[in-house]
Write a protein that binds this DNA or RNA. Structure first.
Lengths: 198, 198, 198, 198
DNA sequence: ATATAAGCGAGACGGTACGTCCAGTCTTGGT
DNA sequence: ACCAAGACTGGACGTACCGTCTCGCTTATAT
């Protein structure tokens, strides 16, 4: 694939060491406390090696996320045939994976990275939030076919609501609980309007 | 209030100059590009004066937000008697105020500040997001009394959904549009489930 | 003198620590091996403090020389009435002070500094080599008055010869000896031409 | 000479490219501004090729000088029978070749190289300054045979004086002029002592 | 012919130093 | 007790080179 170019090939070991160092430092010191210099030092790598492949700490963080070095919520929803059951188990799994203090620190870091750098924001969205959102949309669309979702519902907006609340809670440092997730699901499924609008 | 203490009283002029300098720099350079030194220089103020009153740039930013120096979305909802109309006009106003590129840059900056500093996060939440959310909850609760919201709906979760999606869109750098806001409102009002499950 | 300006005054302690650190490092590692970073570290001073007052390592070295922190050959010649005796003792003193390996390393360093930087070159000349040369010229001119130097001799060129040979020997790493100095003095005093040109 | 060893023979083209690149960079940026990396880049040569043959930039500079790629003053003195005439024309030629700003920059660079590296210093002396000095000594010794130099004069010291003053002037950035050279020659030939001491 | 050997350009590697910016702190004179 | 000014130590920034190391390739002698 990478045609036989001249010159010493890129060191896979250095690449992984950088991403893992970034993840570790992110957990312990947050995005603000992260530094290119610190990443290089902990990875046992020259600073130039970091700058050769990543333009900023936001880019390193984004790559670490994309590489699975920063753990991600699951991209696939179960499909048992019952939408409510499936969304509930998906939400429970999400709550479980985000309640570890480490996990919320990482998410805050990703938010800060997205805030600081447009490119990082796009990459994180395209390969992290995006697929997750798409999985929800797909499941909802499948449910529509079997009549569990009304024909004219905007499944995209529903997915947005289900996903973004967690981001909001993490940033606001409000604890994320199962109850809260289920209340949200109830709102999204049934709405808050009176049961039988004519 | 500040009892007649001895010594020179705090300079109100310096205080405002600092907050306004912070706002201006935030617009042009983002939270990452903001510095205490830069704030002091632009405000024409000694660095010590900044440190005397604020421990970090996140604290300055939080104060600037609370002081109204960073413009905020409206805290009150109209109450025309029709919930859907009121929420629509509230959302439209929100969309309008967040679509300016400056505004989204400021929101990203506040998100970064919240991510970086727990104290700033709390202050921003308590006096910025919180009242806004509360206003929505209050309006929904009032609507419930007149039967426009079903009795067992969780108005808190509904408010969370309405507010947090915008945060998500700003961080993901997805454009915020009226259509999108109205689709979301439709989901929150009516749910996505089949219209009349019996 | 330095009018009551606002702001913290310059630290004399830091100034001396920098110059002494530069001298020590110069002795042990030469001008090439000297670094602004190393100077700051050894002086226990922030790097910025060095850069605030000196633009380059050549400037630091020049200042260290001017401040007497780098030892200098004597600027005054004895005047016993006999020129040859006085120049001999002056040369002996010069030979003595330049034969220490430390001293020749310092002189090579000053030559490198002069080579690297025009400003440093001028400062070193004006306050280091220059006065020394002038002292020789003055002594020669005084000797001319009493008939120990012929009327039309160019004392400036004679001083140049007496001084520059040592520089040449240090750079060429030829050992400087009393004999060599005295041979040179003989050439300068008597010339190499036949004893009685008509 | 280099016995028919196996393997690809050294590239003469690369060797010259390196030395010429070094000379060009020396002219424009001085010895301090010269770098192995820069030499390789300008020569269109791999860095390893430079390091394979030269251990340091001082070594490259020394080689460039020895190879005639850095222009040198003439090694031979005319011998018209009249010493004063010959030395005058030799000095004039030296003055002429050193007054070009490029030339003095190169000489300062050679001085810096000699200062930085003992090996380079020796090579430069042995094959650059040394032969030049020897040529002067030889001419003076020849002149002694015909009575133009007194029997007990130290021709070595005289040669040192004639050569080293130029080095001193270049480092001090004092302009080198014909007048100055001739004054020096007068001192060396006739001395500064009274004309006929008996 | 085909190994083996050495040189070549290219370019990544772990590092050091550069010169600048900023973090927080401290110390002036003045309000 | 506050203020502006500005110097202090410290540390990260992003860049330039250091000297070393692998690549694929070329060019020689030795089998």
């Amino acid at each position: 694939m990478t045609a036989g170019r001249p010159g010493r090939p890129r060191s896979e070991q250095a690449r992984r060491a950088v991403l893992e160092a970034a993840r570790d430092l992110l957990k312990s010191k947050g995005f603000e406390g992260l530094s290119m210099e610190g990443i290089a030092a902990r990875a046992g790598v020259g600073k130039q090696t970091v700058y050769r492949w990543w333009p900023s700490k936001a880019a390193v963080v984004a790559d670490a996320a994309l590489d699975g070095i920063i753990p991600q919520p699951p991209f696939v929803l179960p499909d048992t045939g019952d939408l409510h059951t499936d969304l509930t188990s998906w939400l429970d799994e999400g709550v479980r994976s985000m309640t570890a203090p480490e996990a919320s620190a990482l998410i805050r870091a990703l938010a800060a990275a997205a805030s600081a750098d447009e490119t990082a924001s796009n990459r994180l969205y395209n390969q992290f939030t995006g697929p997750n959102r798409q999985a929800v949309v797909d499941r909802l669309d499948a449910a529509r076919v079997v009549g569990q979702v009304r024909a004219d519902a905007d499944t995209g907006s529903a997915a947005d609501a289900l996903i973004s609340v967690n981001l909001y809670l993490v940033l606001a440092r409000d604890p994320i609980t199962q109850e809260r997730a289920r209340s949200l699901l109830d709102v999204v499924m049934s709405g808050i309007g009176p049961a039988h609008p004519q």
